[in-house]
Simulated scan of single mutants.
Amino acid sequence: MIDVHTFENKTAAYYTLGCKLNFAETSTLGKILEENGIRKIRPGEKADICVVNTCSVTELADKKCRQTIRKIARQHPGAFIVVTGCYAQLKPEEISHIPDVDLILGAEQKLDILQYLGDLQKKQKGNIVTTPTKDIKKFSPSCSRGDRTRYFLKVQDGCDYFCTYCTIPFARGRSRSGTIEQLTEQAREVALSGGKEIVITGVNIGDFGKQTGETFLDLIESLDQIEGIEHYRISSIEPNLLTDDIISFVARSKRFAPHFHIPLQSGSDTVLKLMHRHYDTDLFARKIETIREKIPDAFIGVDLITGVRGETEELFE
C-alpha cells in the first residue's frame, strides 16, 4: 500500500538518454508521479527525486549514463536517485556501486515506480529490483508529448532478432506489443488533448501483434480513422517487415507521412550475414524500388554500421 502523504510537496527531475522510446516512457513516468502529488521541478529548483532513464546501446552510452548520474547527484544533493532503462536492466550491480544511487529498476518495473519509492530515505547502496530478461512478458503502454502538438506513441517493445551488434533483446526482452483497441484509444486521447501529429515508436514495430494475431498494417489502418490527428509518422521499420501492403497503404493515406526510415546497416550481403540480419541487399533494393514506384516523392532514411567484427576493407567498400 502506497502512503501518498510521503509524496506531499515533493518535486522530481527527469533525465532521458537514448531513443524516442525512452522519451515516451519518461513522459509516462512523469505523469504517474504527477498524479500522485510529485511536481516536476521548476528552473533553478533542487529536486527531491531524480529519475534517470538510461540507454546501453554502446559502451559509450554506458559511460554517458554514469557521467549523467554523477552530475545529477552534484546538482541535486540529497535527492533520492532512481535509475532505470536499458543500462539498469543489463548492469544493475555496476550502477548500485555509483554513490548516491538509491534505486535501480529493470525494464519490467520501470512504470511501477511508485511501488518501489518507499519512504524516499537515502540508501548506503542502491536497491536493485529487476526481472531476468527472459522472463519479461509485460507490455507497458506509453505516450509522450514531444512539443506542443507532436506525440510519440509506443506500440511495441522488445525484439526477437538478436542481431550480433545489438543489446536490445537483452535489455528489453522479447517482442511484445499492445492491442489495436488499446493503442487506438490512446491516439483518440491525444486528439482530444489537441495533439496533431503522432510518431509511432517501438523497438521493432513491424513485429507488432505477435501475441494478439493482429498486424502492423491492421494497427495503422485503425489509427488512420481517428479524426483530429493530421499526421502520423512511422519511426523506423525493418526492411523484411515493411510489406508491399504497408507501402500501398501509406501511398493512399491522407494522414500517414510519405516517410520511411529503413535500417540497411551494410551494403554487403556477407556483412549482413555476420550481423545476423533478416534480409539481403536484393530485398532491400526491391523495397526502395516499390516505395519509389508507389510514392515518388517519399523521404527515405537509412542507417549504416561500419567496423563490424569480420568486416574487411573489401567488404567495407
Rank of each mutant, 00 (worst) to 15 (best):
L105Q: 04
R188A: 08
Q182K: 11
E311C: 05
T133K: 09
Q265S: 00
F162G: 10
R172M: 05
R74A: 11
V250C: 03
I246G: 03
G44M: 03
E108A: 13
G18R: 02
A171G: 05
K294R: 12
Y232C: 07
K196V: 05
A171M: 00
V190F: 07
G78T: 02
P169R: 08
L183C: 11
H5E: 14
A285G: 11
E108V: 07
R150E: 05
P43A: 08
V51I: 15
I32P: 02
T290H: 13
E214L: 10
E197G: 05
I262M: 06
T26V: 06
P239G: 08
E293I: 02
I128N: 12
L304G: 05
P296M: 14
H5S: 13
K10T: 00
A171Q: 01
K125Y: 13
K64L: 03
D245L: 15
K254P: 06
P77W: 10
V4L: 10
P169I: 09
V83D: 02
P239K: 05
I2C: 01
C143Y: 03
L272V: 12
I262T: 01
G202H: 10
A187C: 15
K91S: 15
T290Y: 11
G78D: 06
I81V: 14
T243V: 13
T68K: 07
C19R: 00
G146V: 14
R66F: 06
P239R: 02
I295E: 03
K125G: 07
T149C: 11
V308F: 14
L274N: 04
V199T: 12
A47N: 00
I2W: 00
E197L: 05
A47H: 01
A12H: 02
R176W: 10
V82R: 03
D3T: 10
K273T: 12
T179P: 06
N53F: 07
G78Y: 08
E289T: 14
A187E: 03
V155Y: 01
L192T: 09
E221S: 15
G213H: 09
E8Y: 08
Q115L: 11
E293D: 06
Y87A: 04
T306D: 08
Q211K: 15
E221N: 15
D303S: 09
I295Y: 06
G209I: 08
V57F: 12
A79V: 07
V101T: 11
A285Q: 14
R66N: 04
Y232W: 12
T312E: 12
T84V: 00
G85F: 02
G301D: 13
T212E: 02
A298W: 03
T58W: 06
Q211N: 14
R286I: 05
L274E: 08
S56C: 09
D135M: 12
K71Y: 07
G178T: 04
G202C: 13
P258N: 09
T164Q: 11
F23D: 05
Y232A: 08
Q75A: 15
